[in-house]
């Protein structure tokens, strides 16, 4: 993985420090061209990986990438699925069964040839695979070497202790997409233990890592212990703690943990992208990974 992973929160009005700022972002990135322009600036600065949610508008960005194959030949996308608010709003409005009907491609009753929902009751893994395929459709023809599940789903499965689901996800991503499965979480130590317990070794885990312990559930001490002692491939996110930290002190802190392979960050201006990227290149010294 590259040291620098460019994120997409800024494009979709996700701002953990201010609802007001998030509205300003929604206005600025109303147009897909505004998103592509910022992506191009990031590429010009030498960033080659875009880690993004399976938001409807990413499909438009993917169309643009496919339409310009020469320009984006080396460009990688790390999809993060699902775009949870889409499903969460649907569950409030339609219920769980209604949501499945809405988002599973085609008709559930024809997808599962015999018995519809009755059959579906016994085949959750098939349902999961169908939903993954539906989310992955927009990336056809684009390189997606790592595919993530979003933290809402990861942490839900983690809390429900349905760890076998991780195993099935892991296997399907490797088999169908020849990609490495990744996990985003707000509960990194507990997740690593859970993944290890079902035989998933050395996983890619993206979690909040910052020197004030923001969104590091269970406390900063256990996070630091895992970063120092356990075997996994950490990606740091929320490194600026939603703006509470200055970039230099934030990234300098990450340099304490040689295991951190990459940093995920998003920014809207070329100068901010450059500043953060330069700091990451300077302070992050990941230890060489065998593969």
């Amino acid at each position: 993985m590259d040291k620098v992973l460019f994120g997409d929160n800024q494009f979709f009005a996700v701002n953990h420090a201010s609802d007001e700022k998030s509205r300003a972002q929604a206005i600025r990135f109303k147009d897909d061209r505004a998103i592509i322009q910022v992506l191009d600036q990031a590429i010009d600065l030498g960033i080659n990986t875009f880690m993004c949610t399976t938001h409807d508008r990413i499909a438009n960005v993917c169309d643009h990438l496919r339409a310009n194959p020469a320009k984006y030949a080396d460009f990688l996308i790390y999809p993060c699925m699902p775009y949870a608010h889409k499903y969460a709003n649907a569950v409030t409005e339609l219920g769980i069964a209604g949501t499945i009907k809405q988002y599973v491609p085609g008709n559930v009753f024809s997808t599962f040839a015999k018995g519809g929902f009755a059959f579906l009751n016994k085949d959750f893994i098939k349902l999961m695979e169908l939903l993954i395929d539906a989310e992955m459709k927009m990336f056809k023809g684009i390189q997606t070497p790592v595919i993530f599940i979003q933290n809402v789903l990861v942490d839900m499965i983690l809390g429900l202790k349905m760890f076998e689901v991780f195993k099935e996800y892991d296997a399907y991503i490797r088999k169908k997409y020849q990609a490495e499965p990744g996990y985003i979480t707000m509960n990194m130590p507990a997740l690593l233990d859970a993944l290890n317990s079902v035989g998933i070794e050395n996983p890619i885990i993206c979690s909040s890592i910052n020197k004030i312990g923001f969104r590091m559930s269970g406390g900063i001490e256990i996070y630091e212990k895992y970063l120092n002692e356990k075997e996994f491939r950490p990606i740091a996110m929320q490194v600026l703690a939603a703006g509470a930290l200055r970039p230099k002190e934030a990234i300098e802190y990450l340099g304490n943990f040689p295991k951190i392979e990459s940093v995920l960050f998003g920014a809207s201006s070329q100068s901010h992208i450059k500043e953060t990227k330069d700091l990451i290149e300077k302070y992050l010294c990941p230890i060489a990974v065998a593969d």
């Binding site: 953990h16 420090a17 809402v152 942490d155 839900m156 809390g159 707000m186 509960n187 507990a190 004030i212 312990g213 923001f214 969104r215 559930s217 269970g218 406390g219 703690a241 939603a242 703006g243 509470a244």
Partner: peptide, 15 residues
């Protein structure tokens, strides 16, 4: 004042 300073610490985070 920001939520980063005011959030109630928890051992498990979901949403």
């Amino acid at each position: 004042k920001y939520i980063t300073d005011l959030a109630i610490p928890v051992d498990f985070y979901l949403r």
